[in-house]
Design a protein around this nucleic acid. Structure first.
Lengths: 270, 270
DNA sequence: CGTCAAATTGATCGACTTCAATGCTCGTGG
DNA sequence: CCACGAGCATTGAAGTCGATCAATTTGACG
């Protein structure tokens, strides 16, 4: 079925049933959210008094749909998401993946409509911060605005890195960069940067990188043959990070001649 | 020339007249910045009392360098910028372009260091909002936080659109999408969506799209031959927007079979 | 007027796309 | 329980598009 893979979509039973271990109240306060985002300050004395709803999703569920009305911004507490847009002909263009501590749906703040969709690739939990809280002209929680700015800044940085991934010349280079990108995020979460469990299909990766999925497969094979990594289905072990980085470095030849041609006119007015 | 064509730094021309007659104090207040970003509310009674420094740059000047320390976030009042990173071998990877009302350098808020560089492609003016003002734990200007959230949200949206541009299969499709992207931004600024004056070189476009610059040249030629646009150096006229959109639509074949497989199981647990 | 960079055009080769077939894992139904 | 089917992943073969090298033209600036 749709969620074949290892998508342990448990019983079809709706919310009510299962022995949901997480009692929703547990960490669903502003303090919990601030901690997730690595708020610098212990901040906020009354943070525990401010509730921030948690939302739990099963693998395969969509957090929000493209074009859907946006009520909240989400912060990934656990799980992995796929961001994508669907073309008129049904082609699914993947825009990126998001994991723990990342922001989802912030791009909908300005239009109140989601420009893209988000789907959980495994069971997941997110904080849902109402957009109204963000844009309210009334009294504000300073720590929240700050931590929001920080989180979004991070997100912007990651998207630029993705651009570098996608712009690479060769398919192997794209894949190498993509894996290093994932690896870095693993490391940032305190996990091993060498062991990756890909939550997404080859097709999703291919869509993101802008190549055919067969090419992704072949690129994995090529990198494995060179000994920089080992692949077993969706388990990837990065055996030689430096070797992988060497692949990732490859560019479309620098500006031919001396790079000293830098900048003809370097004046900024105060 | 740099500002050849129809570079008439729009109707916002400053009180006194010519473009180099900008008396720096004139609009360099928080109110001016809020207005630039299309602040919904007339907001802020004392906005005129809060100064926000303007910075003026000549064509070719860099606003900030990759790796440089970040003191401020910038908002483009006039001009066009190129965002890029430089690889070890000197290759310049373009990450995007920014025009009026866009945010620059926000990705440096979290690390206080610019992950990429920004260079003015023509004479430009920007607001420089100190990062300290954004992250200060002290008393805040609510309208500023809001407008900041909105602007960054917009920026995030644009980057996702860029991903769609870069991920396209064929070179012509990439170029078509890129031009439509530019066109949309022109329209958003109240300018004609058909007449584009490219501020960047073919090489820059090629870098962004992840193709060779010769290919960009050929793609222009191909689109011109098909009659959807006319090119003269850096002046581009979009003759047939729908035709261009038809090019842009082309994808890597949708999910083979019926697209009715849409979304079988769309449940999220509360 | 001479130099240099940007832009265009051509020719060749390699890489990627595409079409097609097979193996694999897992869930479902016989 | 096992066999079947579905989707994912891998591999092969052939054609095409784009990268690369190279030459030429145009335009800009000193």
């Amino acid at each position: 079925m749709w969620n074949s893979g290892h998508a342990e979509i448990p019983s079809l039973s709706i919310a009510s049933g299962r022995r949901d271990a997480i009692t929703a109240g547990a960490r669903s306060t502003l303090t919990g959210l601030l901690r997730l985002l690595g708020s610098p300050a212990p901040a906020l004395a009354d943070g525990d008094a401010v509730p921030v709803p948690l939302r739990r999703l099963h693998a395969g569920a969509t957090l929000f749909l493209e074009g859907g009305h946006a009520d909240a911004v989400y912060f990934v507490q656990a799980g992995t998401f796929k961001l994508y847009r669907t073309a008129e002909d049904g082609y699914e263009q993947v825009l990126g993946f998001a994991g723990r501590a990342e922001v989802l749906g912030f791009d909908a703040v300005c239009s109140r409509q989601h420009p893209s969709a988000a789907q959980a690739l495994e069971d997941a939990v997110v904080y849902a911060l109402p957009i109204a809280d963000i844009l309210s002209p009334g009294p504000r929680v300073p720590a929240l605005d700050q931590v929001l700015h920080l989180a979004v800044s991070h997100q912007l940085t990651r998207r630029d890195e993705l651009a570098e991934v996608m712009a690479a010349v060769a398919a192997e280079v794209k894949l190498a960069r993509f894996l290093l990108h994932l690896s870095a995020r693993m490391a940032a979460c305190g996990q091993s940067p060498r062991r990756l469990l890909l939550r997404m299909s080859r097709r999703d990766i291919a869509s993101l990188l802008g190549v055919a999925h067969e090419t992704v497969s072949r690129a994995f094979g090529a990198l494995a043959t060179q000994g920089v990594l080992a692949v077993d289905q969706r388990e990837v072990e990065l055996l030689d990070l430096d070797g992988l980085r060497r692949f990732a470095r490859a560019t479309r030849g620098a500006t031919p001649r001396c790079a000293s041609t830098a900048l003809p006119e370097q004046r900024a007015a105060a």
